[in-house]
C-alpha cells in the first residue's frame, strides 16, 4: 500500500528533475530522503512530531473499546511500523504503533473468535439464548430497523 502511494510522488520527482534548476545529485538524495515520510500520505500527511501526538492519542483512545483506531493508526503510520531502523521517526512513535498493532490483533482475535463461535455454533451450542442475542431478533423486538 505505501509503495503504491509513493509511486506518483516519485514520478513527480522525476518530472521535476527535468526542469533546469535541479540537478541529478539532488534528485537522488531527495528521493531517498522523501521516502522517510512517517505516514502513507507522504507529503500530504503528518510530520514526525505531529505523528507522535496522533499516534499517542489514538493509542490511548483505542482502549475505549475502539480497536479500529488502532488499526487506522497502524495503517497510517505503516512506513514507520515497517522500518524499525528509521532514523527520523521518534523512537516512542514506533512503540505506540507496535502497541496499537498488538492491541488490535488481540481485540480482533477475541472478538472474531466469539463472533464465529456464535455464528457457527448457533442454537445447538447456545440454546434459546441464541435467539435472544442474535441481532435480527433483537432489532425486531425493540423495533430498531427504521429504514425500509
Amino acid at each position: 500500500m505505501d509503495d503504491d502511494s509513493r509511486v506518483p510522488l516519485s514520478n513527480l520527482h522525476a518530472a521535476g528533475n527535468l526542469l533546469p534548476t535541479t540537478g541529478e545529485a539532488s534528485s537522488s538524495t531527495s528521493r531517498s530522503v522523501r521516502t522517510e515520510w512517517p505516514t502513507i500520505d507522504g507529503p500530504l500527511g503528518l510530520s514526525h512530531e505531529e505523528s507522535l501526538t496522533y499516534a499517542r492519542r489514538f493509542f490511548k483512545l483505542g482502549f475505549l473499546c475502539l480497536p479500529f483506531l488502532w488499526a487506522v493508526s497502524c495503517f497510517y503510520f505503516w512506513p514507520v511500523l515497517r522500518n524499525p531502523r528509521s532514523q527520523q521517526s521518534h523512537p516512542r512513535l514506533r512503540r505506540y504503533l507496535v502497541g496499537s498493532a498488538i492491541g488490535f490483533f488481540l481485540f480482533t482475535t477475541i472478538l472474531s473468535s466469539w463472533a464465529l463461535t456464535f455464528a457457527i455454533g448457533g442454537e445447538r451450542l447456545f440454546g434459546h439464548v441464541w435467539g435472544e442475542l442474535v441481532m435480527y431478533n433483537v432489532a425486531e423486538k425493540y423495533g430498531l430497523a427504521g429504514w425500509i
Partner: peptide, 15 residues
C-alpha cells in the same frame, strides 16, 4: 440492521 435482517446474518447484538 435492515441489511442484517434482510440476509439473516447471524451476528450477536454485542458484536
Amino acid at each position: 440492521i435492515s441489511i442484517v435482517q434482510r440476509f439473516n446474518i447471524p451476528i450477536d447484538a454485542a458484536t
